[in-house]
Simulated assay, not measured.
Amino acid sequence: MVLSQIDAGKALSSAAAKGKMSEVQRILEECRVHPDTLNEFGRTALQVMMMGNSKIASLLLEHGADPNVQDRQGIAPVHDAARAGFLDTLQVLVEYGASVNIPDQNGTLPIHIAIREGHRDLVEFLAPRSNLKHANTSGHTAVDVARASCVPDMIDLVFAHLHS
């Protein structure tokens, strides 16, 4: 089956977004579609995949997907995983070379998002790997975001890693 680039990207992205593992695998292996093929919206399967499905993330990354792909707003899959609170997916992305210090267009790092969303387990994973002194375009560091959050003990969690 020969697919146009757009159709191939659309099919792969659709299967990934719906969490259809066997379909993603079939498209990658039988149709030999590169995992970074863009869909009709200019996004890759890794960018639109069901974030809670770390197996699909692994499959796409094993086949050569770029773990640091960013959209027009600079949002990478690590930002999406941090926002949604999926530690297993975040761990897979990092294992395959995703940078946790990749800022979006607002200078926001994944740790800023995880703090804001109150995902303590993600903050614990990200803190030792993140540049905690990085400020977003508003001038806020991870400590500032933690101070502004209403999550109990979040500031202590960030401080523990800031001075370690």
Score class of each variant (00 low, 15 high):
Asp36Phe: 06
Glu40Ile: 11
Val48Phe: 02
Leu28Lys: 04
Thr37Leu: 14
Cys31Trp: 10
Val69Met: 08
Ser54Asn: 15
Asn39Arg: 03
Val69Ile: 02
Asp36Thr: 13
Val24Tyr: 11
Asn68Lys: 05
Ile27Pro: 00
Asn53Glu: 03
Ala57Lys: 00
Gly64Trp: 01
Met50Phe: 12
Ser58Tyr: 14
Lys20Leu: 15
Leu46Phe: 01
Phe41Gln: 10
Glu62Phe: 02
Pro67Glu: 00
His63Pro: 09
Met50Glu: 12
Glu40Phe: 11
Cys31His: 14
Gln25Tyr: 13
Val48Glu: 07
Lys55Met: 12
His63Asn: 09
Thr37Gly: 07
Leu38Thr: 13
Gly52Gln: 10
Glu30Pro: 10
Glu62His: 10
Glu29Gln: 13
Ala45His: 03
Glu23Thr: 13
Lys55Cys: 15
Met49Ile: 03
Gly42Cys: 04
Leu61Ala: 06
Ala65Trp: 04
Gly52Val: 08
Ile27Phe: 02
Gln25Pro: 06
Asn68Asp: 04
Thr37Ile: 08
Asn53Ser: 12
Ser54Gln: 11
Gly64Ile: 04
Leu28Thr: 03
Met21Lys: 15
Gln47Arg: 06
Cys31Val: 10
His34Glu: 11
Arg43Asn: 15
Glu30Cys: 11
Asn53Arg: 02
Gly52Thr: 05
Glu40Lys: 14
Ala45Tyr: 02
Ile56Leu: 07
Phe41Asn: 09
Asp36Arg: 01
Gln70Asn: 09
Arg32Tyr: 15
Gln70Arg: 08
Ala57Trp: 01
His63Ser: 10
Glu40Asn: 07
Cys31Lys: 12
Arg26Trp: 12
Glu40Met: 09
Leu59Val: 07
Gly19Lys: 04
Arg32Ile: 11
Thr44Gly: 01
Leu28Ser: 02
Ala57Asp: 04
Glu23Arg: 08
Leu46Ala: 04
Thr44Gln: 07
Met51Arg: 08
Cys31Phe: 13
Pro35Thr: 11
Asn68Glu: 03
Ala57Asn: 01
Gly52Asn: 00
Gly52Met: 00
Gly64Met: 01
Gly42Arg: 01
Gln47Trp: 12
Glu30His: 06
Met51Asn: 07
Asn39Cys: 04
Gln70Pro: 09
Met49His: 00
Arg43Tyr: 09
Lys20Trp: 09
Thr44Ala: 04
Met50Ala: 08
Leu38Gly: 08
Lys20Gln: 15
Glu23Cys: 05
Lys55Arg: 14
Asp36Glu: 06
Lys20Phe: 13
Pro35Trp: 00
Ser22His: 08
Gly19Arg: 07
Ala57Ser: 00
Leu59Arg: 04
Asn39Lys: 01
Arg32Thr: 12
Met50Asp: 12
Pro35Asp: 04
Asp36Tyr: 09
Lys20Ser: 12
Gly64Phe: 02
Leu38Glu: 10
Phe41Leu: 08
Pro67Trp: 03
Arg43Cys: 06
Val69Gln: 04
Leu60Pro: 09
Gln47Glu: 05
Lys20Asp: 13
Ser54Asp: 14
Met49Asn: 06
Asn53Trp: 03
Gln70Tyr: 04
Val69Trp: 03
Ser54Arg: 00
